[in-house]
């Protein structure tokens, strides 16, 4: 009996020792996972975006990301933020043909929309960045955008007092470039458009949300005749492939070739989403087209005949009415709820 008790005690003591030696990391993990998650309230049937395991969406990471998105401290002269070029009212893009950075410097490309950016598998129009997190330092450090140096920004973040508590809470470390890139990516992932008239018509199976023109345009868009949907497919109207649409015969910006250095990639750019496309004029990687009318005219004409031009880019012989119908359909992808969502603004 006594021996049994001793064994019992040894067992308990052993368990205690085991607990003592392991409780530290276990506790930490519990704290990390106990952060309130940020739930994306998406309607049934609308796919959830992939969220990286090492950067889960939490209330605090999104709050921190939002504050940073609107903070001018991310530019060298504290004059601009992410939101300077990604305006909610312009569908998270802006209206310049080419981006305008600090001191009015003209950049390299048209500002891409951040609408539903969470669904993208790579970033920049040539796919030069593998994650939203990694993309962040691109515009910040580009001389013609926010013009900063990442090492200098790291010092500015370390000395900043505003974000330290949020950084500790969200990522368990002081404010630094790691926290900056993770938090900004988190906030960007929350900006999802799913309430355009087109979405409502689809979801409720009620064409009443669309004009007659838009309905005809939708059918034309998805028809084999225009083949628009062979690239602009899926819930975000892009298959994320790189295509050459015959904008010209000699490309100044060589697109995907910049990454792959393969001749067959010259002039190929990531197929853009069409969500909020009615808000993001001008169009194309260099903002060369002022209106959707010009874009449709380009596709109708069939491209300039670049050697890498996609075979589906060919003359379409669209009637005037058909062009108008397609444009009406594209406007039905404008999500008013999205651009008026005060959740995406710093001060609603």
């Amino acid at each position: 009996m006594k021996l049994l008790t001793t064994y019992k005690i040894m067992g308990v003591a052993g368990a205690i020792i085991l607990l003592l030696t392991t409780s530290h990391p276990a506790k930490r993990e519990a704290a990390g996972s106990s952060l309130a998650r940020y739930e994306l309230s998406l309607p049934k049937g609308f796919p959830s975006p992939p969220i990286p395991e090492d950067n889960p969406l939490t209330q605090v990471s999104v709050t921190l990301g939002k504050a940073l998105f609107y903070d001018n401290m991310l530019s060298i002269d504290s004059s601009m933020s992410c939101a300077s070029c990604h305006l909610l009212s312009a569908g998270l893009a802006d209206h310049h043909p080419i981006s305008v950075g600090i001191e009015g410097r003209i950049g390299f490309r048209n500002v891409p929309t951040l609408t539903n950016i969470a669904y993208h598998p790579y970033f920049f129009v040539e796919g030069g960045s593998p994650s939203l997190e990694r993309q962040v330092l691109g515009p910040i450090c580009n001389n013609d955008e926010l013009g900063f140096n990442a090492a200098d920004l790291a010092v500015r973040l370390t000395n900043n007092t505003v974000y330290q508590d949020l950084a500790m809470e969200a990522y368990g470390r002081p404010m630094d470039l790691f926290v900056l890139t993770r938090a900004l990516a988190s906030f960007e992932r929350t900006m999802i458009s799913y309430q355009s008239p087109y979405d409502l018509a689809q979801r409720e199976n009620d064409p009443g949300y669309l004009s007659a023109e838009a309905v005809r345009g939708r059918d034309l868009f998805f028809s084999p005749r225009t083949a628009c949907a062979s690239c602009h497919s899926g819930p975000n109207f892009t298959n994320f492939s790189f295509e050459n649409i015959g904008l010209e015969t000699e490309y100044v910006d060589q697109g995907r070739y910049r990454v792959s250095l393969r001749e067959e990639d010259i002039g190929k750019f990531k197929v853009p989403t069409l969500r909020n496309i009615g808000l993001t004029a001008p169009y194309m990687h260099d903002g060369r087209m002022e209106s959707l009318e010009e874009v449709i005219a380009h596709y109708d004409q069939g491209g300039a005949g670049h050697i890498n031009q996609h075979p589906l880019i060919k003359p379409l012989s669209l009637t005037k009415q058909e062009k108008q119908d397609l444009i009406a359909f594209l406007h039905s992808l404008t999500d008013k709820h999205f651009i008026q969502n005060s959740e995406f603004l710093l001060e609603p």
Binding site: S129, C141, T158
Partner: peptide, 27 residues
Amino acid sequence: NHSDPTTYPADHPLAPKNPSMHWNWDA
């Protein structure tokens, strides 16, 4: 070369530097 510079401590040679030693994209 394709790892994330922000995962290194600031004084690490692979952390962001001034002058920059990283292109901030896939390169």
